[in-house]
Design a protein around this nucleic acid. Sequence first.
DNA 1: CGCATTAGGTTAATATGTTAACTATATTAA
DNA 2: TTAATATAGTTAACATATTAACCTAATGCG
Lengths: 169, 169
Amino acid sequence: MIGDTAQNVNGNVNGNCVAGDAVSTHRRHLALELLATRERFMQHFRPVLTKHDVTEQQWRVIRALAANGGMEPGEITKRCVILKPSLTGILSRMEELGWIKRQAHADDLRRSVVRLTVSGNTLHRKIGREVEATHTNIVNSLGEHEFAALHAALDRFNAGLDRLGSPPS
Amino acid sequence: MIGDTAQNVNGNVNGNCVAGDAVSTHRRHLALELLATRERFMQHFRPVLTKHDVTEQQWRVIRALAANGGMEPGEITKRCVILKPSLTGILSRMEELGWIKRQAHADDLRRSVVRLTVSGNTLHRKIGREVEATHTNIVNSLGEHEFAALHAALDRFNAGLDRLGSPPS
DNA sequence: CGCATTAGGTTAATATGTTAACTATATTAA
DNA sequence: TTAATATAGTTAACATATTAACCTAATGCG
């Protein structure tokens, strides 16, 4: 990835705007940049997860359960940013792997409560150590300020989205 | 979504840290927050795309092609943050829909060049107008500063990742 | 030239994302 | 109490994500 200027067939370089574009093609695309940044960041952690045969989503669920101790699927979907139909399969597989268990809710027969098993907790500690170590390395390399600044910018942006309200679903 | 404090079965609230957690469960998770923020932001645009039966990924490709006029698949994967195996199917479907065409590369028989068709360009202008309008609404509501600040924070963070180099693949 | 290596894309298998429809249970109100 | 409605999860169908293996064409080099 060194020296590939990514010049396309038209002779344009790096997506610079060309005259005559009807719709704005030159502004920055926040959603794409959030995606790209997350992707670059995650690349540092993916080897750790892959090594332990855990998917990103499974790791998110494990971390949420380790932090909260017992959650209903509905809670998990919100905290882990996973849609309900996806979570159904994710939990099924995690249950088969013996990492979690589901128990029925006493009052409401629709609901259930998900918990980490002992081996699930063990897995969390094992992977967690490596993830934290990797994270610490990156923080030390980039500086805590960069992280704090990005978190702060995200907070302010989210606060703005809060004020804006929900989109017309 | 008003007044749901998300209290879990253990009585903990909002994922606050519990005593005795072996691995750090209280720090902020940047990757998750980038994902969540992007998701919340995208919710405002999803209705527009859905209305025109275009997926997020297809829209990214359309926008990239509209801005660059002709790209090789390899370029598209980088700009749109789509892996090669995924792009294969995405381009096939877009070709069937008549939005793009592929032509062979003169020199290198492995490569190909992807371009928007006339109807692909029409679709881009149509959706683009609505997307830009939505975007303008959000910017006006949140203030340009919030966007600029987040973009700047992302830039600085990415610069830090640049200095860090590629992860051990 | 002949061969090993590299690069651009595709295929395959499995997991997840996304929307809509559906089941079972709860809740609400007439 | 009953009928309408709402809620928690699942199922179904298709699109995309992810990794590994594969295929073909191009490159580098002896």
